[in-house]
């Protein structure tokens, strides 16, 4: 198939960017969107033009590296949500015009073309997205039974791949879905209880320094490649409000 892609090109963080149109020719419907970009890039290099820079690695929807706005939708899939690398060209039609833009948010400055700096998400994890247990100090794994439904729910949240699509799609540039997924993953498990309230407060505070706030548009959930539910946001709000109503002393003893 043949299509026209309009891609945002920007040489560096400071440089001015703009759309450039390219022809994507003879693309197999079985190719992925990234493979289509590979083909375009090969032809660009042959013509002496620099390739379109975009981030990617696993190409199977798990590393969270890839991500771009395709026709106004993060990762480009309008049906079942998936990562850009999982989107196949059979989802497009012959002759389509496709607009490709980088993630946009104040917290995600552009590095080059479609590559943005998502390190703000790591900063949120650093604020408390962990369980403080040093190597070697763990008890026997089966000592604390965890009800299967709890483990399943925790896993639903833990499935996040930190691609940043939630932020990119959210009209407010909010990272609520991402943060709440980590808060819930750990906060649901017995092992996560001791730090549960301190964790949510610290993570939310750091999150709010960089990102917008939630107005429950539900856009994040709709584009999340791992279908993480916005119910986790409610859960995070609840824990945050509860934490704020507890005294510091109560929090430090984990009640």
């Amino acid at each position: 198939m043949n299509l026209t892609i309009h891609v945002w090109r920007q040489k560096s963080r400071e440089a001015k960017g703009g759309f450039v149109a390219y022809k994507a020719e003879n693309i197999s419907p079985d190719a992925s969107f990234l493979e289509m970009l590979d083909v375009v890039n090969e032809s660009l290099i042959e013509k002496g033009e620099e390739s379109i820079h975009f981030e990617h690695d696993c190409r199977e929807g798990i590393c969270g590296s890839c991500g771009m706005m395709i026709n106004g939708v993060a990762h480009g899939s309008r049906g079942k949500a998936m990562a850009t690398c999982q989107l196949h060209m059979r989802h497009f039609k012959e002759g389509d015009e496709v607009w490709v833009e980088p993630w946009r948010a104040r917290a995600f400055p552009i590095i080059k073309d479609l590559i943005v700096d998502r390190s703000g998400l790591d900063t949120i994890i650093q604020a408390g997205g962990f369980i403080s247990v040093n190597t070697g100090s763990a008890p026997e794994a089966n000592m604390i039974p965890i009800p299967k439904p709890v483990q399943e729910l925790s896993m639903d949240a833990a499935a996040c791949i930190q691609c940043g699509a939630c932020v990119a799609q959210c009209p407010n540039g909010a990272a609520q879905l991402f943060t709440s997924a980590k808060v819930s993953h750990l906060g649901l498990l017995p092992q996560g209880q001791p730090e549960r309230y301190e964790r949510v407060v610290r993570m939310v505070e750091v999150m709010e320094e960089m990102f917008g706030s939630c107005t429950m548009f539900g856009e994040c959930e709709a584009v999340c490649p791992k279908a993480i539910s916005i119910d986790f946001i409610a859960r995070m709000n609840r824990d945050f409000i509860a934490a704020k109503f507890k005294s510091q002393k109560e929090i430090s003893v984990g009640v």
């Binding site: 369980i131 039974p145 009800p147 299967k148 833990a158 993953h185 996560g192």
Partner: peptide, 22 residues
Amino acid sequence: VDIIDQAVAQGVPFAREYGGSL
């Protein structure tokens, strides 16, 4: 053996049986 203990303590949500064990 120690790896599993460590991972569970970190919050790795390994699959479980209905009784709650791994």
